[in-house]
Amino acid sequence: MSDTIIRIENLVKIYGKNAAKTHALKGVSIEIPRGSFSCVVGPSGHGKSTLLQLIGGLDKPTDGSVLICDADISKMSDNKLSELRAEKIGFVFQFFNLLHNLTAMENIQTAMMFGKIPQKDHRAKAEKLLALVGLSDKANAKPSELSGGQQQRVSIARALANDPDILLMDEPTGNLDSESENEVLNHIFEIHKSGKTIVIVTHNTELAHRADLLFVIKDGILIQKEGLS
């Protein structure tokens, strides 16, 4: 097993057909070592989110390959991809994307339902994760009863539900005020310390400077790479 947990080779993604074609990614190659903290930056709408979605198997590339732990996920069946997302990858989105009719606790447990965690352990583990993000007292709150920052922290707890190796975050603080932003970032740093591989798409320059690896995407291509060699 190599040190590279995520390997992307010549990734191409084209949306639409004929005249309405959009080349979101035009051949991107990236290697991300296990346990690293990477940031993907660049102008809006130039392919950063697309890149993250393809890494996480939320969409399929038009060409090229994505290897997670040396397995080519671009050739995986839909079911295998779902398993991958359940067990190896946790997602955090800019707009939180919590299930509105469930409580914080239930949101986390739903993720556990799709992973291989036995139902009898759901409650205990969920409580632990809520404690990790400092929201033990909000276990039974619905998203509508939580602030933006709190929702994002629940979202992070959910992403950690099945103890994944990789955390992918798409502008996790993009929708938060600066105070909540700092809170969330601190949690992310804590989680990185526990050995998870983190890839964040962000506009936050401070975050970008603290990353081990920095990737700059413009017009669908990787124009700059900084950090660990």
Binding site: L58, S82, R85, N97, A161, N162
Partner: peptide, 10 residues
Amino acid sequence: GILRAIGGKS
């Protein structure tokens, strides 16, 4: 989409 993203199979 969210359910799928967090690991739900089709």
